[in-house]
Simulated scan of single mutants.
Amino acid sequence: MGVEFAVAAFVNPILDRLPDNGGLAARSDGARLLGKVMPFWYIGSVVLGAVWAVLAWGGVGAGLVITATALLVLSVLIPIALLVPVNSRVAQWTHGSVPADRKQPLGRWDRFHFVRVGVIVTAFVLLVIGKG
């Protein structure tokens, strides 16, 4: 949750302010690198949530843990459906091949990412409350 929030609130806005499209190179590199590792931590979170839901089944807070796990599943589906297509495009950009309309897909990615962050934060809050 912390990493996703930091990317949305701080990293990408900082990168966007770099001169001479410096942020585009960083976003492109980040899209390639994180595209390789993110599936593992997202799927790991869903698996851990599912294990917790099974262990909590029938107990106090089980509904919250199950709902949180469903939200974690949604947080995996959002990137697949909305973010990966943009990331795939951005990952191919080089300093010499940045399209003129670059701000449109980056802005769309940022908006979808904020939605994903909201889903993840909500899941985290439900897990904390469900622990009760």
Rank of each mutant, 00 (worst) to 15 (best):
G2K: 08
V3D: 08
E4S: 12
A6C: 09
V7F: 15
A8Q: 06
A8W: 06
A9G: 04
N12P: 00
N12K: 07
I14L: 14
D16T: 08
D16F: 09
D16P: 00
R17S: 14
P19H: 04
D20K: 09
R27H: 04
R27N: 07
D29S: 14
D29N: 11
D29K: 12
D29R: 14
G30A: 06
G30M: 02
A31G: 09
K36S: 09
K36W: 09
K36C: 07
V37N: 10
M38T: 07
P39L: 10
G44K: 11
S45V: 02
S45D: 03
V47E: 12
W52M: 14
W52A: 15
A53M: 10
V54I: 15
L55M: 14
G58A: 13
G58L: 12
V60P: 09
A62M: 05
A62W: 11
L64W: 13
I66V: 15
A70T: 08
L72V: 04
V76S: 11
V76H: 03
L77V: 15
I78M: 11
I78L: 15
I80P: 01
A81V: 12
L83V: 09
V84K: 03
P85F: 11
P85S: 10
N87E: 09
N87G: 07
S88T: 11
S88Q: 13
R89H: 11
A91F: 02
Q92D: 10
W93M: 07
W93A: 04
S97D: 00
A100P: 01
R102K: 14
L106V: 13
G107S: 06
R108P: 00
D110E: 04
D110V: 00
R111K: 14
F112M: 14
H113T: 06
H113S: 05
F114Y: 09
F114V: 12
V115R: 04
G118P: 01
V119Y: 02
V119S: 03
T122S: 12
L126I: 12
L127F: 09
L127R: 00
V128S: 05
I129L: 15
